[in-house]
Each structure stands twice: as structure tokens, then as C-alpha cells.
Simulated scan of single mutants.
Amino acid sequence: MNNNDVLRRIRYALNLNDNKLLKILDMGGNPIKREDIPTLMSKEDDQNYAETPDTVLNAFLDGLITYKRGAKDEK
């Protein structure tokens, strides 16, 4: 399983639309353009396939935590 698979499965499991996906990536510190979403969601046999970098997946997971739990309180 590669980063594209992980990102795609989490997106569909949580029913995240493009706007939510962009917001989560922005919260994680790696904003992307709407035009880049099909590349992130592509499978290995798709024509526009490009492997999602670890930094993008990391930003998505960090942003997802913030999105679901809220911002971390600084003490």
C-alpha cells in the first residue's frame, strides 16, 4: 500500500470532499491547489499517477487530527 492508497482510503472512509481535503492539508501546513487533488487520488495504473510524497501524507494526517480534535492548546 502506498501513500496514494492511504490518502484515498481515509478520504472516502471519512467522506471528505475536495474542500475539506484542501482545508485539512492547509491545517497540516502543506496547502495544495485544487488541480493537484486528482494526482493525489490516482491509482498506480492511472495515466496521471504520481506518488504522493511522505510530507503531503504527514501534513494530511496532522491536519486531520487538528480538523477532528481542534487546535492544540499552547500552555
Rank of each mutant, 00 (worst) to 15 (best):
M1K: 08
M1D: 03
M1V: 04
M1P: 00
N2G: 01
N2W: 07
N3Y: 09
N4C: 04
N4E: 09
D5M: 09
D5Q: 08
D5G: 02
V6S: 07
V6I: 13
V6P: 00
L7Q: 08
L7R: 09
R9H: 10
R9E: 14
R9Q: 13
I10R: 13
R11F: 03
R11G: 01
R11S: 10
R11H: 06
Y12N: 11
A13T: 08
L14Q: 04
L14K: 13
N15H: 11
N15Y: 08
L16F: 14
L16D: 04
N17C: 01
D18G: 01
D18W: 03
N19T: 10
N19V: 02
K20A: 07
L21Y: 04
L21M: 13
L21F: 06
L22C: 05
L22A: 08
L22D: 07
L22G: 01
L22K: 12
I24K: 10
I24A: 03
L25H: 06
L25T: 01
D26A: 10
D26K: 15
M27S: 05
G28S: 07
G29K: 09
G29E: 11
G29W: 14
G29V: 05
P31N: 15
P31H: 15
I32F: 07
I32R: 14
K33Q: 11
R34Y: 03
R34P: 00
R34E: 03
R34G: 00
E35Q: 13
E35L: 09
E35V: 03
D36P: 00
D36N: 12
I37R: 10
I37C: 01
P38Q: 15
P38I: 14
T39A: 11
T39N: 10
L40G: 01
L40P: 00
L40H: 08
M41Y: 09
M41C: 06
M41G: 03
S42K: 04
K43D: 03
K43R: 15
E44I: 04
E44M: 04
D45F: 07
D45E: 10
D46A: 07
D46P: 02
Q47M: 12
Q47K: 15
Q47Y: 15
Q47V: 07
Q47E: 15
Y49I: 02
Y49W: 06
Y49C: 00
A50I: 05
E51L: 11
E51G: 01
E51I: 05
T52E: 10
T52N: 07
T52D: 10
P53N: 14
D54V: 05
D54T: 06
T55I: 11
T55G: 03
T55F: 13
V56Y: 11
V56E: 15
V56A: 07
V56Q: 12
L57P: 01
L57G: 06
L57S: 06
L57A: 07
N58H: 12
N58Q: 14
A59S: 15
L61T: 14
L61Q: 10
D62M: 14
L64F: 05
L64R: 09
I65P: 00
I65Q: 10
Y67R: 04
Y67V: 02
Y67I: 02
Y67C: 00
K68Y: 06
K68D: 02
R69V: 04
R69G: 01
G70K: 14
A71N: 10
A71Q: 13
A71P: 00
A71M: 09
K72G: 00
K72P: 00
K72R: 12
K72I: 04
D73K: 15
E74S: 09
E74Q: 13
E74P: 00
E74M: 10
K75F: 09
K75T: 13
K75Q: 12
